[in-house]
Amino acid sequence: MDLHALEQFLVVARLEHLSRAAGELRVAQPSLSRTIARLESEVGAPLFDRAGRLRLNESGRLFRDHVERSLGELAAGRRAAVEAAREGVGGVRLASETFLTITGPLAAYKDAHADVDVELHQMPATDMHRA
């Protein structure tokens, strides 16, 4: 499977509209349609229902969740390689619904590890698994 096709699939899955997705991706809609059809062929199952409006079906939702996790792991691997090349200076990403309970420990960590980038993301728990 082509990484670019997987990234395009996620946009189509999010928008559930080929023309809008093509516009956001800045690709021709027929090309995007062929990419999605090729991906469905590789997966071996339709990922969208096409009755009337394009809708992500159950197979598509399951596949989307795996693609999001896979692309997240690839991005983490890329970051790890860059961090290793920079001799271990790294970063920490933290997601929480609220940071009120950890402000003290977080400040202590930053004091002890000033060279580490800390990235905070506040979001509902339902969104954390995708992030």
Results as ranks from 00 to 15, higher is better:
127 D>V: 08
77 G>H: 05
14 R>P: 03
52 G>Y: 06
61 R>G: 10
15 L>K: 13
72 G>E: 15
105 P>Q: 00
130 R>L: 14
83 E>D: 13
121 H>I: 10
88 G>T: 01
75 A>S: 03
64 R>C: 09
13 A>V: 05
119 E>H: 15
47 L>H: 06
126 T>K: 12
6 L>F: 01
106 L>A: 13
107 A>S: 03
131 A>W: 13
11 V>R: 12
65 D>N: 10
45 A>S: 13
11 V>I: 12
34 R>V: 00
16 E>I: 07
35 T>D: 08
109 Y>A: 02
63 F>W: 10
67 V>A: 11
51 A>R: 04
103 T>V: 05
77 G>V: 10
106 L>E: 10
52 G>F: 01
129 H>W: 15
87 E>P: 00
123 M>W: 09
93 R>K: 12
54 L>P: 05
24 E>G: 00
66 H>M: 07
105 P>F: 03
126 T>H: 10
120 L>A: 11
101 T>N: 08
102 I>F: 00
82 V>H: 00
9 F>E: 08
93 R>E: 15
35 T>K: 05
42 E>W: 04
123 M>K: 09
39 L>F: 06
10 L>Y: 04
44 G>Y: 01
110 K>L: 04
10 L>Q: 13
130 R>H: 12
92 V>M: 00
67 V>Q: 05
127 D>E: 14
64 R>S: 08
108 A>T: 10
82 V>W: 15
66 H>I: 04
37 A>Q: 14
129 H>K: 14
42 E>T: 07
123 M>P: 12
115 D>S: 15
50 R>S: 03
91 G>K: 09
73 E>T: 12
6 L>T: 05
48 F>L: 01
61 R>K: 06
90 G>N: 07
117 D>M: 12
62 L>V: 06
123 M>S: 14
57 N>C: 07
109 Y>Q: 02
83 E>S: 09
12 V>Y: 03
125 A>D: 14
96 S>R: 08
26 R>L: 00
44 G>K: 03
1 M>H: 04
131 A>E: 06
